Amino acid sequence: MARYTGPKTKKSRAFGQPIYGYDKYYERRKYPPGHHGGGRRRRQKSDYALQLMEKQKAKYTYGVLERQFRNLFHAAESARGVTGEILIQFLESRLDNTVFRMGIAPTRRAARQLVTHKHIVLNGVLTNIPSVILRPGDVVAVRGKSQSMEVINESVNSKSDVRKFPWLEFNKDKMEGTFVSVPERENIPETINEQLIVELYSK
């Protein structure tokens, strides 16, 4: 399966929440997509359907492919602790997600593009792998030549308030931030029921 590049609002409507952030078009049409989306009575979903939808929601939210997601789940399953929480922590600790959370990019999709196009430096080393899982103390910075890019400056000046993410620190002037610690589940704002994902993979 290729990475999803289609209409964001359509996916948000399918999941019943703005998974890509605030969307004025979603706010106007909060019912499911399709010709009868707003008026047709829908049958109650089975447990399997709910579990599958939750997994799909997590995949689309973080922009992760099926194989990557499954590998992350198996890594979380073999780690010490609650599997579902560790899975969400892994997703939050990805380099592309961290670039987005720090405000360097306006969306996760844009953050992934910045990383793959070599605009981001990790611990002083240029990297183009969005899926790198960060560890406490890792330093993420915008490459010197890239600090004048309009998209980065606009995002940093409008969205670089990381105070609501206590596991991150960011310096606007240096365009450099630190992944201070692995985030606690209660501090991660995504409304994903990870227990349903665990149940799905446990079948």
Rank of each mutant, 00 (worst) to 15 (best):
S93I: 10
G124S: 00
H74G: 02
I86C: 01
T127C: 11
R70S: 12
N97M: 05
H117N: 14
K145C: 06
H119E: 13
F73C: 10
V82E: 09
R109K: 14
R112Q: 14
E77A: 14
S93R: 12
T98V: 15
P136Y: 04
I120K: 05
H119S: 14
R94M: 10
L122A: 06
R94N: 06
L95A: 08
A141M: 02
D138F: 11
V121W: 02
L114P: 09
G103V: 09
V121T: 09
K118L: 01
G84C: 03
V142Y: 10
R101N: 00
S93A: 15
R108H: 06
A76C: 06
F73H: 03
V132I: 15
G144I: 09
M102S: 08
V142I: 14
K145E: 15
L114T: 09
A141T: 10
G137M: 01
R80W: 01
A111D: 10
T116A: 11
P130S: 03
F100T: 07
V115E: 10
T116G: 10
V99K: 12
I104T: 10
L72T: 05
G124H: 00
L87A: 12
L91Y: 04
N71F: 00
H74N: 10
K118I: 01
K118E: 10
N128V: 02
L134W: 00
N71S: 09
D138R: 11
A75Q: 15
V132P: 00
P136M: 03
R135I: 04
I133S: 06
I104Y: 06
T127G: 05
L95I: 03
A105F: 05
K145Y: 07
I120L: 10
L126Y: 03
H117S: 12
G137C: 00
V82F: 12
F73G: 11
V121C: 01
V132K: 11
M102Q: 13
T107V: 06
T98P: 00
T98D: 06
L134P: 04
A76R: 08
I129P: 01
S78P: 00
R143P: 02
Q89M: 13
V125A: 08
G144D: 15
V132Q: 07
A76V: 08
R109S: 15
K145I: 13
G84A: 02
L134Q: 00
I88C: 04
R80P: 03
